[in-house]
Write a protein that binds this DNA or RNA. Structure first.
Lengths: 233, 233
DNA sequence: CGGCATCCGGGAAGATACTG
DNA sequence: CAGTATCTTCCCGGATGCCG
């Protein structure tokens, strides 16, 4: 009889931790493993299923995604829930505490935006770009701007509301929006952060703008990037 | 002649990265590796030498510390500098951009303080506890509190200044402080975050308080912890 | 097909020993 | 003191396969 290796033994006991009372170190114990924070990011705007997580996280393997979901669930950061019929699919949803991790995602993203090595021309997920609007929004620049902006990015739709120098972003239908962007998340990023003109993006078939064009133009100016760090030779 | 293994080949080429334009993902490429953020934390209050980093980071191996220092230097987050004689020792110092990562450390620490699994009775470094004061300081609670507080934690000394509802923390001599704490960082944590009475800590030889005792007592009340998340069964 | 479990190869982390 | 060399262990990433 073959002796089965007990690889799963001591699972929760002595996993690689920082033995440190510092809150930051404990935070890393919770969400410091590879992919963990990006899984949280993808769930920040609402629950998702396994396959959607996998396709929105370029390069994660099913193996690792399973482990991260288990770990985050064990830590109380997310729960797995079954959607009511007829959807009847299993989804992963952040707990209240899990949603409270958004400032971490934002602080890290804002800081990293100064990096000289940052390449914004890579793949970006719909949730990422919408979260980046929350992160980079400048309320001073948004004074007097009002309106509802819809986004159709692949299969996902979002609604963004501007008014009184404030902004709200959430999943939602685009019906009734003053302007609707339809296309890919990278193209939207190119328009907002890269200064790409709508016409060029439309010609490539990457992004279309329907509705209040003036509002759309103004919208792209509300998210200033911090100055880059100069690259040493 | 011994053939040297070219272990540094393809060093910068295809290290494990997230191929993602999201700023958060890029931030993880910069400081997401194991130990990286804790190395930054230890340097937040000023330069340190290799051995001090090693002894203040419980459990890091020299091997990994070397790699992290190399990586952080390559990313432009720290520089290695040689102290002028007679000290003439090599130290690692954060760049301006490196120091700007403090909000990340703080946001993560504040968030993790809600964890039901957090064990504050472990080892904590002098820099960690001083940084935690910056993180958890409540300016409302500090209205009307003025004074200079010194800390002698092992070989390191710090000076904290309170006044006008604000607080400053830095390395510095304790001479002229209104009250001076002398002892271990965990004991100081027990007093401020665990509510341990000074008498008990003094009896254990863990912490002594010299000077304005009233100010010392008041000081311990300025850093409220967020409510813990209830632990699921 | 979604949601895993299992096996495998490569590489990063951990521990220890050793060197200038 | 400031690392390097080496060895082991474990995690990550990819592939395959099971099972509802």
């Amino acid at each position: 009889m073959k002796l089965k290796k007990i690889t799963t033994a001591k699972s929760g006991s002595s996993r690689r931790r920082y033995d440190d009372a510092c809150g930051t170190a404990h935070g890393l114990d919770l969400i410091g493993e590879r992919w963990a924070l990006l899984v949280m990011r993808e769930l920040m705007l609402g629950p998702k299923r396994f396959s959607d997580l996998r396709s929105d996280l370029p390069g994660i393997s099913a193996n690792v995604l399973t482990q991260r979901l288990e770990g985050l669930e064990a830590s109380g950061l997310l729960v797995r829930r079954r959607l009511p019929p007829p959807a009847s699919a299993q989804v992963y949803e952040l707990t209240e505490w899990g949603y409270e991790a958004e400032p971490i995602v934002q602080t890290l993203g804002r800081w990293a935006a100064r990096s000289p090595d940052h390449d914004p021309s890579m793949q970006i997920s719909p949730v990422s770009i919408m979260l980046s609007f929350r992160t980079m929004f400048d309320s001073e620049l948004a004074r007097g701007v009002e309106g509802r902006i819809g986004f159709r990015l692949g299969a996902e739709t979002f609604l963004l509301e501007l008014g009184g120098g404030r902004m709200q972003v959430a999943r939602g239908e685009t019906a009734g929006a003053d302007v609707v962007f339809t296309g890919s998340a990278p193209a939207l990023a190119a328009a907002v952060y890269g200064g790409a003109p709508f016409d060029a993006l439309a010609r490539e078939g990457a992004l279309t703008v329907e509705g209040d064009r003036k509002l759309a133009e103004r919208f792209t100016t509300l998210f200033p990037l911090p100055p880059k760090v100069e690259k040493r030779a």
